[in-house]
């Protein structure tokens, strides 16, 4: 069976972003960009399913600028077989991305569709659920374990109270949580091979999707700064401060 994995190009998780002075967004000039960590986990899971013989082909898709080719190539270096870049410079919202992915699903007919649980730029945590609704299929969100048994998939989900396991008939959606797996490092020969793997370029219009978002960002501002605190020298001083200054205990 075929697996489809959606990967997003985002600011690297180690970067502490700064808001632009004109409040139009965050400053991305010369900032390191990477594959969204949750998407990397999604790719790794697809590769493991392929290694287990469950999946036979892995298609990676990204919606974004031409530069997202870099992230697509790294996904192929991890083991994906081919890829589709739906190229646009617009900031496509989660619903727009889900609609584009629905178009790709219709064309590719994958049985397992893997996404990250959230993109660490917009922190939306929406796209996988939206795609599942558009497809009318089941979803295993925030997955920490995925087991495919014939035409059913069992997904263990990280929920606020602990863990929940659900069974979903295929095709179905998985969104990955951090503990699903630890992505491998791409070996150099695989990075070389990935350069030759097929990459198709499409546009949102190819899937009939209008990417103009109806949720508009009016401005982006820095968060309230905390005042720098003090160093206390002893447990006694700490207790004194908590009791008499902060009055929290």
């Amino acid at each position: 069976m075929k697996a489809l994995v959606a990967v997003k190009r985002v600011v690297d998780y180690n970067v502490k972003v700064r808001v632009k002075a004109d409040q139009t967004g965050v400053d991305l000039t010369n900032v390191k960009m990477s594959i969204n960590p949750f998407c990397e986990i999604a790719v790794e899971e697809a590769v493991r399913l392929k290694e287990k013989g469950v999946v036979t082909e892995i298609v990676v898709v990204s919606v974004g600028p031409a530069a997202a080719q870099e992230q697509i190539r790294s996904a192929m270096a991890l083991g994906a077989d081919r890829s589709i870049l739906v190229q646009t410079d617009d900031a496509v919202g989660s619903l727009g991305v889900a609609k584009i992915l629905k178009g790709i699903v219709d064309a590719e007919q994958p049985q397992i569709i893997l996404l990250g649980k959230q993109a660490i730029d917009d922190d939306n945590n929406q796209t996988g659920q939206m795609l599942a609704a558009l497809m009318g299929v089941g979803q295993g969100t925030f997955a920490s374990e995925v087991v495919v048994e014939g035409t059913t998939m069992k997904v263990t989900r990280e929920i606020d109270g602990g863990l929940q396991t659900v069974a979903l008939p295929l095709p179905a959606i998985v969104t990955t949580d951090l503990r699903l797996n630890e992505p491998r490092y791409a070996a150099l020969p695989n990075i070389m091979k990935a350069r030759k793997k097929p990459l198709d370029t499409k546009t949102p219009a190819d899937y009939g999707v209008d990417t103009t978002p109806k949720v508009k960002t009016l401005k982006v501002t820095p968060p309230a700064e905390r005042k720098a605190g003090i160093k206390v020298k002893s447990v006694d001083e700490l207790l004194d401060k908590l009791k008499n200054e902060a009055k929290v205990i």
Binding site: V11, V17, V26, K219, P223
Partner: peptide, 9 residues
């Protein structure tokens, strides 16, 4: 957004 490093309106 961005892990709370920016606030979007």
């Amino acid at each position: 957004i961005y892990a709370g490093n920016a606030i979007a309106t």
